[in-house]
């Protein structure tokens, strides 16, 4: 998912960076009221969880590539949008500065696409759907699955806008790149939705008390939430309707192989090509229809997954036990 340096124009990076900086500052301020003195340990830990969780590779239906969790919606569901946005931002900062994964100048754009859209936007969708579906475990999982799917499409649409702004002057029609990326993101989005739903289903079955209800203090107001949900839906529709998309290589696994973490990766040596090694040749000429079709099929798959995972969750969840807090007495 990361945008590399050099893909976007400097002025686009600057603008995205300014927006991201504002979002981080605002998140920090809201967080202080939201989590009080637990803000630092909980948010820092969530960033570490997402970072480590991204090391777990998911095989892609027999293809010689694999995907991984992005985590924006998962973090926001567990800790709320402010901590979620900060956690994903920190993951991106550490990946850029310690692993050269992603980019330094495009860090702002990456934070905007993945942390702000992923956690804020994803949370808005999640909270809105839960308002409709109620507070049960099954409703929680369905809402998170749909939010995860929309957050990836939203990030994709945003990247398209950034990419078009950047390559406007070159006199190039970037349709090839963009339609290719719709396909990628449909796949990534389905993966993200499935993983988010499955992880959350597991957590709800074990410690349902750890997942807060969205109406806890500090959450967004109803109007803001609906506005953000509408925006996310519009972005997602834009991503599906217009063959309009792009993406850059993801090198996290590559970095992991170079550094000491390759111990974790013994199972799948083929994963070095990560999410993006699908043959490119034909897809570049594909007209809009099959590309949009990919988005629509993805949407259907995600809705079916939401229903199935909700069913599994409903079966697994035992009545909520309150944490008794006695560790290793």
């Amino acid at each position: 998912m990361h945008i590399r340096d050099g893909i976007l124009a400097p002025e686009v990076c600057l603008a995205a960076g300014a927006i991201s900086l504002g979002a981080i500052t605002y998140s920090l301020r809201r967080l202080r009221f939201d989590l009080e003195d637990r803000a630092v340990p909980l948010t820092g830990m969530m960033a570490a969880i997402v970072f480590a969780g991204q090391m777990v590779n998911f095989p892609l239906f027999g293809l010689p590539v694999s995907g991984h969790l992005l985590g924006g919606v998962l973090a926001a569901v567990m800790l709320g949008p402010w901590a979620g946005c900060l956690a994903i931002s920190m993951v991106l900062i550490v990946q850029a500065v310690l692993f050269s994964d992603g980019g330094l100048m495009s860090l702002g754009a990456n934070i905007l696409n993945m942390a702000v859209v992923g956690a804020w936007g994803g949370y808005a969708v999640y909270a809105t759907i839960r308002r409709i579906l109620g507070n049960g475990a099954a409703a929680t999982v369905s809402a998170a699955v749909i939010a995860a799917w929309l957050s990836v499409l939203g990030a994709a649409a945003l990247f398209c806008a950034e990419f078009l702004c950047s390559s406007r002057s070159a006199g190039v029609d970037p349709r090839g790149v963009l339609s290719l990326m719709v396909l990628y993101h449909s796949l990534i989005g389905v993966g993200e939705a499935l993983i988010t739903g499955a992880v959350l289903s597991f957590v709800l079955a074990r410690r349902g008390d750890l997942v807060p209800t969205p109406n806890a203090p500090g959450s967004v107001g109803t109007i803001g939430r609906f506005a953000a949900t509408g925006l996310m839906a519009a972005l997602a529709v834009a991503a599906i309707v217009a063959p309009f998309k792009s993406e850059s290589p993801d090198g996290l696994d590559a970095a992991a192989q170079d550094l000491k973490f390759d111990k974790l990766e013994v199972e799948r040596p083929a994963l070095v090509l990560d999410d993006y090694a699908i043959p490119v040749a034909e897809s570049a000429w594909w007209p809009a229809l099959p590309v949009s079709l990919a988005g629509i099929v993805g949407t259907l798959v995600v809705f079916i997954a939401a229903v199935v995972l909700a069913g599994i969750t409903r079966r697994n969840v035992v009545p909520i036990r309150v944490a008794d807090g006695s560790h290793g007495n």
């Binding site: 567990m78 499955a198 074990r206």
Partner: peptide, 18 residues
């Protein structure tokens, strides 16, 4: 594999939150 991997992440998340 997907289900087991998700459980691994879920367990990691639970332990880390605790």
């Amino acid at each position: 594999v997907w289900s087991i991997n998700s459980q691994v992440i879920g367990l990691l998340l639970l332990r880390a939150m605790e």
